[in-house]
């Protein structure tokens, strides 16, 4: 399995999907067409979960994301729930900039709809 990397642009996030089990989304996500931006990410994730690592870490470090992206992030996280149910170590780490309680609360909101260990942390 190969890694998937996307440099950040003005409206799409930095994406790093590593076969070693480290998945990262950073910066801003407000693509004009979220379906086409996230399609390769979903392909990668569905491939990964077939043959996952013992430990998977999903890291979000976002500054801004629109509602369409929020839905995509949740959909991605849902893909990992069966792994956790099957005893794999899966963890979501939601990072927010010091004082950015709007992003913190958006993380907490997402954690409420996801059944995965979810850590919200200030950096």
């Amino acid at each position: 399995m190969e890694e998937l990397l996307r440099e950040k642009t003005e409206d799409t996030p930095y994406v790093e999907l590593l076969p070693s089990g480290k998945i990262t989304f950073k910066e801003r996500s407000l693509p004009e067409d979220s379906n086409s931006f996230f399609a390769p990410i979903f392909d990668w994730v569905s491939e990964y979960v077939k043959n996952p690592q013992e430990k998977t870490e999903i890291i979000f470090q976002l500054e801004y994301f629109n509602s369409a992206s929020a839905r995509k992030f949740v959909k991605i996280l849902i893909e990992f729930e069966p792994l956790f149910d099957n005893g794999k170590n899966v963890k979501v780490i939601w990072l927010y900039k010091q004082g950015d309680i709007v992003i913190r609360d958006r993380g907490i909101e997402i954690s409420k709809v996801i059944s995965l260990p979810f850590e919200v942390k200030e950096i």
Partner: peptide, 18 residues
Amino acid sequence: RKYLREGNETEHGGAGLG
């Protein structure tokens, strides 16, 4: 939260989340 989890995508895309 419900739409975030379950989606509600219409033919025009978008779940009304916005």
